[in-house]
Amino acid sequence: MHVSRRTGFFKSPTWFLVPVVIYYAAFWIRPTISVIIESFTDKAGAFSFSNYVRLFSQEAIRTAFLNTVLFTVGSAIIQFVLAFALALWLNKKFRFSNLVLFITLIPMAFPPAAVGILWKTGLYRFGWINSFLCAIGLMNPANPVDWMSFRNLNAVMLLIVVDTWTVLPSVMIILLAGLQNFNKEFEEAGWVFGANKFQTLKDIVFPIMKPTIITAMILRMIAAVQVWLIAVMIFGYNVVPFLVERIAYNVDVITFAKYARKDAYTISVIVAAIVLISVSMYLRVSGDKQKGGETT
C-alpha cells in the first residue's frame, strides 16, 4: 500500500533519498561513467572502438565468454531446481526442521577465501574428496582422480558444483520466504479438485510463486555472470577463463601491462551489457510479472 499524504514538492519525503542519490553519484555513477568512457577511448584519449576490436580478437576472451554463458545457464538451471526442491522440503514442518534449516544455510556463511581452501583441499589428488570416496569404497586409493587437472567443459561443470554448494542457500532462502507466504489452501484446492502433486506444483504453485522465483533468479543470474573468484581460488588464473576472471587478471596480475586497464574496463562494460540483456530477456520470457497477483 502506498500512501501519499503531502504532495507539496518540498515536503515530499523523496528528499530523504537525496543522500543515497549523492552517494551513488559519487561512488557508483562517477566511476561507472569513467569506466565506460575509458572503454571507448584509445590511449591518446580519442574516441575509438579499438579496445573492443582488440579484445574480441583474443582467443582467451572468446573462451571466457563461452565459459561464462555455460556457467550462468548451467548454474541457474541446476540451482533453481535444487533450491526449489530444498525449499519445498524445508517448508514442511518436521521435528528439528529449524536445525536442518540452519545446517543448509551454513555454506552461505563461508567467505570466498574459505570456500577456496575448502574445495582446493578437497579437489587435489590427495584431498578429502578422494579420501572420502576411498573410505566408502568408491575409489581405489592407489589411483585417485586429480580433479584439478580438469579443463574446459569438465572444469566449468566442476565449478558449477562448487558454486552450487556455496550459493544454494541464498537462492533457497528467497524461495522459502515465498513458500512461507504462500497460502496453503491454493495448493490444497488443487489436490481436492483432482490434481496430483506434480500437477499442483506445475499449474498452481509455480505460477503463483512467479514473482518470488523471478527475484531469486535475477539476483542469481547477476551473480553468476560475474563468477571468477572460485575459479581463481581452485584453478588459478588463466586456467578456466571467465569474463570477470579476465578483469581480475588484468587488475590483479598484469596490472602494469600496456592494455591491462583498458582491457579491464572494456570487459566490465561487456559484462554489464550481458547482464542487462540476459536479465531483460529473462523477464521477457518469464512473462508479465504483475499477473501473479496477491498470494495471501
Binding site: N183, E185, E188, G190, W191, A195, P207, I208
Partner: peptide, 20 residues
Amino acid sequence: LPPRQRDISMIFQSYAVWPH
C-alpha cells in the same frame, strides 16, 4: 486415499481461488 481420488469438492475459508 489421496484427495484427488476421493471425488469431492471443497470451498475453502480463504476461497482459494487461484490468483493466476
